[in-house]
Amino acid sequence: MRQLWQRWQALPAVLQTLVFALVFALLGLGMTDFQLSLVSEMLIAALFALSLNLIMGYGGMVHFGHAAFYGLGGYTVAILTLRYGVPTWLAMGLAPFVAALGAVIIGWFCVRRVRLYFSILTLAFGQLLYTVVFQAADFTGGDNGLLGIPKLPFINSEADFYYFTLVVFFVCFFVIRLLVNSPFVLVLRATRENAERAQFVGVNVRRHQLIVFVIGAFFAGVSGAMIAEHNSLVAVDMFFWATSSEPILGSLLGGMYSLVGPAIGGALLIYLEVTITRFTLYWPLVLGILTVFIVLVAPSGLVGLVRRWLGQSVAEDSA
């Protein structure tokens, strides 16, 4: 088992990613429409969690307002297509950049303070956006959201959307993987471990934190745009703080100190949600108990448990 693992790790990144993508592509052939739709949503949630974990896991910044950028991504698609008649593909292409721009502004305020304050500020600014979107009903549809986002021209079935999602997900995953192994993220991890010392080896800590905040927002924007297209609608809930909790808990469940952990956790949460809400309305309660349990018992998540089993160091967090 361990040998197999080592051989797998020796493969080039492109090959690893392709193998994953191929497995999903083959699986897609045998899935029902419901399953295709569910797995698409799981992949989108996985990307959302990955985007957050760049900030939380690698940057050590607990970000309670990530929904803002997910929402910005989704609403960019909805507003551009429905209000301005922009083609869907263009709107979806612009969405991540709008999210990133929002993150430059919000992030500039949030990284002015460290640690606990950062978390407080992200929550507050996230709720600010929620309030604004909720109130500006003439433009955003307020509580009703916006319905009827046009489909991309090449998407005529659940299967089409599934394969489109696969491509988007794995391209993003590959880019995030490159990032994680780059000097940028190594230095980011150093700022997480010891921001003061990082300064004394010449790192501009705030700038580093702001950049990862914006990169994370970019990918959150991608996932927001994807979910808007998947559902053909956006709702103001996309901005709500509870939405921010999903990638946090996904990352925690899967394992913050790893590349794939958050993706697994984020996807798993969607699956659990779909399954559990069939039996009970109290999904947040289940989430809450799960969170407390993981924090107290297995703070490095599922990947941490697997690593312990494989006899690796638990805190290792490069890919």
């Binding site: 309660l285 809450g288 407390v292």
Partner: peptide, 20 residues
């Protein structure tokens, strides 16, 4: 523990108490 875990714990409690 690190402040990250502290925050997440109280965050989980928020979810639990809201549903309770």
């Amino acid at each position: 523990k690190e402040h990250l875990l502290q925050l997440l714990l109280t965050y989980g409690l928020t979810l639990i108490l809201a549903d309770v």
